[in-house]
Design a protein around this nucleic acid. Structure first.
Lengths: 194, 194, 194, 194
DNA sequence: CATGAATGAGAGTTCATTCAT
DNA sequence: GATGAATGAACTCTCATTCAT
């Protein structure tokens, strides 16, 4: 595949990404993507064979970018509390966006495709996030910023709460107040008061 | 609608419920339900107009039963700790079942049907569960069973963790160990050690 | 399937039969049959799932009718020579029709569907025809109508020649003269002169 | 067309020939040939406009080679019986190969393309084969090897039997025994016993 | 009330063919 | 000459929905 093809491939993935954000995963058809990309029916099949195929690639791109974002925020010389606060702020933004998020599409995708146990991007992201938060907390404890007896447990707890907020955001809906309240509870447990 | 019709209606809902448990929400077609019920295509339309229609009714039945179950466990004269433990045990069972649950179908349904804000069964269930747990914890605190500074916050935290576990169970998969670990973390925070 | 459905099924098969005679097997699409039957796309699928499905049924009907024809000509009290002559006359008619025959479609069908060894209608027809001709010849020999040393061999030879004529009729084309010449050769070998 | 082009053209035809042997005629697409030749889509169109175009050329090459083979076997100084036996042996090999033969593809091609009456390669091959066999038999009769009253009729009969065997090989399937039996019948009629 | 045959819109997919490079 | 990306027509198949009986 030449240079040009690679660009088109990327263009399709980016366009498809927007479609998935709008409509979720299951409701998206090859035709939807064809229309959004303004290419021909057959043209799309030169690059991808199914919506599953496309979505998986979108997810890969997404997770690469996610990694970048993470490392960005960490590279700065900030206190653990700063970083955690920043992280939660980002999460809040994401949570309140609801649409314009791949969250719903991702869930639908994993519902449908009975877990590719190995190579499960979602799981990797979850586990890696737990570890990063754990490190962060441990760091904060050493610096006397946080007080916490079970850092690993706490970081897992935080991640599950985030997951809970995420799914509720997509189903019953959440407000900024709800998010704030949960985050405050977490920070309070860490001995932070704002 | 006559007595007979009501029975048929109920029969359809019960059968459809099983279909939704097996296949989720989106993959289920009117034909699937017709086949499972062994009735005629047209017959089904006499009672329901769409799978959305049917699923909503299934959900209503479900929530009624859920209330019953709750009141059952509470009616017994047990300590708060007992009841909470029992409740978590039930939740664990449900979490590990994965299939044979309406969880996935419910999520899919709410993804699709842009939140009927009012009359949102899922929200009611969540809020009511938070309240019950809160009462339970407050009770336990009074009895000296638990120690907890922010009972409402804690009960919300518990429910969000449960939601997080639920969605993870359906997407990346969870094990009994993972559930146990989270529940222990929660109980430890309440001052319970096992 | 009700009485009416059975009639429609038969109607489809008869119509499809004409389509296969016109276009062969491979060139026929479900749409062709839908159009010829003047029914809806989905309607056809209520009865048959593929052109292969339909063609197989057409073939079954055909072979049943073929059996009938055979028994008809035999039931009359005619000499072996009469019957053989009649049989060859029928074959000639069939051979010269070219179109308006399922021959080509049948060949194409068997090319495509790597022989259902068991239940192979074509094979059964061939073998049964060999036997009938053999009986006929043996009968003729007893009556002094024919002279033949290897009745089985001769009847097989006749059938293979017929097959050869059939395929040539569909590929390079044959004329009445060619058929006559072959049939005369066969009859001469049997000691018949006309 | 330059020297180089001619070579490429030949390369394509040889490669396509293998494809047709594997898949028959109708199932072969331009893409199949492009892939097998490992050339570009557009490249193929510089030489041929359709699979029909290509197959016709393959057939021409084939028939030229066929002539060569024939003359080879005749050039040797062997008795008529030897040559006939050799010829039948070759035919048997060909018949039992089934796949790895252009037979099926050729039939399919002639089914589809309503006989180019003039310039019909298949017909020429058939007629020429009849003549050669006739010469052979006449030769054998003169030498006292064969006894035969109607040499032309017999040779035609042989060719039609061969055609019959060929089409049966491709449809209902044949075995070595069946071929042997037919050939013995033919040879016995010629007064040869083995 | 109940049936199930029938409809037609629409999704997925493949391929011959073209054309800018 | 040669490439291969792009097009769009055509085919298969599925379903929600209707309607005569």
């Amino acid at each position: 595949m030449g240079e040009k093809s690679l660009q088109k491939r990327k263009y399709i993935l980016e366009t498809a990404r927007r479609v998935f954000m709008e409509k979720g995963y299951k409701r998206v058809t090859m035709k939807d993507i064809v229309d959004a990309c303004e290419i021909s029916r057959g043209g799309l099949y030169l690059y991808f064979n199914s919506t599953a195929d496309i979505f998986l690639e979108v997810l890969k791109l997404e997770s690469e970018e996610a990694d970048d974002v993470f490392s960005d925020s960490i590279s700065e010389d900030a206190t653990a509390a700063d970083i955690l606060t920043l992280f939660l702020k980002e999460q809040k933004k994401e949570l309140l966006r609801k649409k314009d998020t791949l969250t719903q599409a991702t869930y639908e995708f994993y519902f449908e495709n009975d877990l590719p146990k190995k190579d499960n991007i979602l799981k990797k992201q979850f586990d890696s996030a737990v570890k990063i938060i754990q490190m962060l907390i441990e760091n904060g404890v050493e610096n006397g910023e946080f007080c916490c007896e079970d850092c690993e447990g706490t970081s897992r707890n935080i991640m599950f709460v985030l997951e809970g907020l995420k799914i509720n955001a997509q189903t019953i809906g959440i407000t900024a107040e709800i998010v704030d309240r949960e985050f405050e509870y977490i920070l309070t447990a860490l001995g932070m008061e704002d």
